[in-house]
Simulated scan of single mutants.
Amino acid sequence: MSVADRIDELAGRALRTRWFVRAPIKLYRVRLGFLLGHRMLMLEHTGRTSGLPRQVVLEVVERPAPDTYVIVSGFGERAQWYRNILADPAVHVSVGARRHVPARATPMSAEESAAALARYATARPQTWKRLKGSIEAAVGAPVDTLPMVTLQLDPGRK
């Protein structure tokens, strides 16, 4: 096994470890989310079964406009946050110094997702190479396409 394969395997294991992937949420809760800059955001959504508030920190894939963010579901359509926003697209976003901003989550078409992923891979080839390997190690399958979501912030809505 090569060093790169070993790194992917370890990163994939980390992505499957609940405490590890939830750790950045604590930064947002204590108002330090700005330390993660604009490449990460915290998505607050509603549990589709429980109705309880849920949070997840995700990487921003693209920012096509000042109040628009594109995020990706690395675990595909089975990710709990993704399934929750399909049931209720009214969400809140914390990113940079902005906290708990109302937003609307809109799943992108397969074609839009593929195009956005291709742009990401072109803009950040090394990051994509590592991320792709880590995701594939975590899900145990090749990643050809991943579902993506557009978040449109609406700072005027409460």
Rank of each mutant, 00 (worst) to 15 (best):
P142D: 14
E111P: 01
G140H: 07
L15R: 10
L43V: 02
R83L: 11
V30S: 06
A4W: 14
D67W: 09
G37F: 03
G37T: 04
S94V: 03
M148R: 03
W19A: 12
R54V: 05
V61S: 06
G76I: 06
P53D: 05
F34R: 12
D5Q: 15
Q126E: 15
D8C: 12
R48H: 10
L35I: 06
P107V: 02
A141I: 07
V60A: 08
T68A: 15
L27C: 00
L41T: 01
S94I: 00
E62L: 09
W81M: 05
F75V: 10
G33W: 05
V56G: 05
S2R: 10
P89D: 08
N84A: 02
N84M: 01
P107C: 01
A115W: 09
R31P: 11
V21Q: 02
T150H: 09
G76H: 04
N84E: 07
S73Y: 07
P155L: 06
S94A: 00
T17P: 08
Q152T: 15
S113T: 03
A114D: 03
A110I: 06
M108F: 09
L15K: 12
L32G: 08
L117Y: 07
Y69M: 06
A138F: 11
T106P: 07
G33S: 08
G33H: 01
M42F: 03
T68V: 14
I7S: 07
T145N: 09
V101G: 03
G140T: 08
R6E: 12
D144A: 13
P155R: 11
L15G: 07
R124C: 11
G140D: 06
R99H: 12
T145C: 04
S113A: 09
L35E: 03
Y69V: 02
R31V: 02
A138K: 04
A11Q: 11
Q80T: 15
H100L: 14
G76V: 08
R31T: 13
I135N: 10
L15C: 11
M148H: 04
A123Q: 09
G156L: 14
V72F: 13
R63W: 05
V70K: 03
G33R: 00
V149T: 02
P64Y: 01
D144P: 04
P24C: 07
E136C: 09
R119N: 04
M108L: 15
A65W: 06
R22P: 07
V61E: 12
A110F: 01
P107T: 02
R31D: 11
F75P: 00
T17Y: 12
M42Y: 02
E9Y: 14
G12D: 09
H92E: 12
S50A: 07
A4Q: 13
L35T: 05
P147M: 01
L117P: 08
K158N: 15
N84Y: 03
V101I: 09
R13L: 13
R63G: 05
S73A: 11
L32V: 07
D88L: 05
P64W: 03
A114C: 08
R16P: 00
V72Y: 10
V3P: 07
W19H: 13
P147N: 03
V149D: 00
R98V: 09
A11K: 07
T49Q: 15
T106M: 10
E77A: 11
V56C: 08
R130Q: 15
S50P: 06
F20H: 11
I135L: 15
V139P: 02
I25E: 12
R22E: 15
W81C: 04
